[in-house]
């Protein structure tokens, strides 16, 4: 009961942290839908890992831990990583997955080196920077919530404004280009939105696991609907659910890391959806299959019975004539 005591007293910090987690879950869930439908789930992974050195460099240059500055550094690094991946694919014969792996590990390794260097440098202000690896939602302050709310809100508004263009880009890029949509620019726009969603979540969820926040809500949402607008909305809800529940669980006891807990909550949503969703769910499928088999059996029996009866009638006819 001790653990649940905090729930009854509406802890101010917890409320702030939950709001922040809900916001970032909403943003990453909605935008992650596009990454999943575009089969770019792993791009999110590369971006989030690539963002780590950006945070370190932003801190080294400014000596400040202001969220906006760190987020900016993360965004620039994440963007640079994406750019390098795309250039590698375009200019060399290295395939997309190898380019992803290459950039992801190189940037992340570089980020770890920089963070270790900062820790050893004895800068008193550096404490908490390594939270960006695994995430620490408890460090979310009111100003962070404001940053997440404003930047995330802008990203979502842009998504809504270019709704039909982005939809066509993902569904049929060739047709989109043929009617004159600037597919390159739209692609850049979409990637930028992903970068925003990712860097906003880094503080709470961490670089290692952030991509799951893009992928898991979208995968869960896809199970329940066949419409894009519903899928985006549902993914946003699943993201918010995972963010809030993960934060509450992890703050209910010391020593439970927030990021992994949030991801586990998202995974629960995925597991539930894959198992129980109508039409696409496993349970529904097996019921449907069994029912089909039974109906088929009944139909065959009827058919066999009917033909037997028919033959009997024919036989009688020939006899009478």
């Amino acid at each position: 009961m001790d653990n649940l005591y905090f729930l009854t007293r509406f802890d101010y910090t917890l409320i702030i942290v939950s709001i922040g987690a809900a916001l970032l879950g909403t943003v990453s869930g909605a935008l992650g839908t596009y990454a999943v439908l575009r089969r770019q789930s792993l791009l999110g992974d590369a971006i989030s890992h690539a963002a780590l050195p950006g945070i370190a460099i932003a801190f080294l240059l400014t000596g400040s831990k202001t969220p906006l500055i760190l987020v900016l550094g993360a965004a620039v690094a994440g963007w640079l990583g994406t750019l390098i991946i795309l250039s590698i694919v375009r200019l060399t014969r290295i395939k997309y997955d190898s380019a992803l792996g290459l950039v992801l590990s190189t940037f992340f390794g570089f980020g770890l080196v920089l963070l270790t260097f900062i820790q050893r440098s004895g800068n008193a202000n550096q404490a908490g920077l390594d939270d960006f690896i695994f995430g620490q939602a408890a460090t979310i302050l009111k100003r962070d919530v404001l940053t997440i709310g404003i930047l995330g809100g802008v990203a979502l508004i842009i998504m809504v404004i270019f709704w039909k263009e982005l939809k066509l880009l993902i569904f049929d890029e060739g047709f989109a280009a043929s009617i004159g949509l600037p597919t390159r620019s739209l692609d850049i726009l979409l990637t930028s939105l992903l970068v925003i969603a990712i860097v906003l979540g880094l503080q709470a969820v961490g670089a290692v696991l952030m991509s799951a926040m893009l992928v898991a809500p979208a995968v869960a949402a896809r199970q329940w609907t066949d419409r894009l607008n519903l899928m985006v909305t549902l993914a946003a809800c699943f993201g918010a659910f995972a963010g809030v529940s993960g934060t509450i669980i992890s703050s209910s006891a010391t020593g439970i890391p927030t990021g992994p807990t949030i991801i586990l909550c998202a995974t629960v949503a995925v597991g539930f959806s894959i198992a129980f969703a109508p039409n696409r769910g496993l349970l529904w499928n097996s019921i449907k299959q069994r029912r089909n088999r039974r109906n088929l059996k009944i139909a065959t029996n009827k058919f066999v019975g009917a033909t037997a009866a028919e033959n009997q009638i024919k036989e009688n006819d020939t006899r009478t004539s």
């Binding site: 439908l37 049929d172 060739g174 066949d226 894009l228």
Partner: peptide, 12 residues
């Protein structure tokens, strides 16, 4: 375009 050029599992 060629029918096979798009993902027909797209939610629409």
């Amino acid at each position: 375009p060629q029918r096979g050029s798009v993902d027909w599992d797209f939610p629409t």
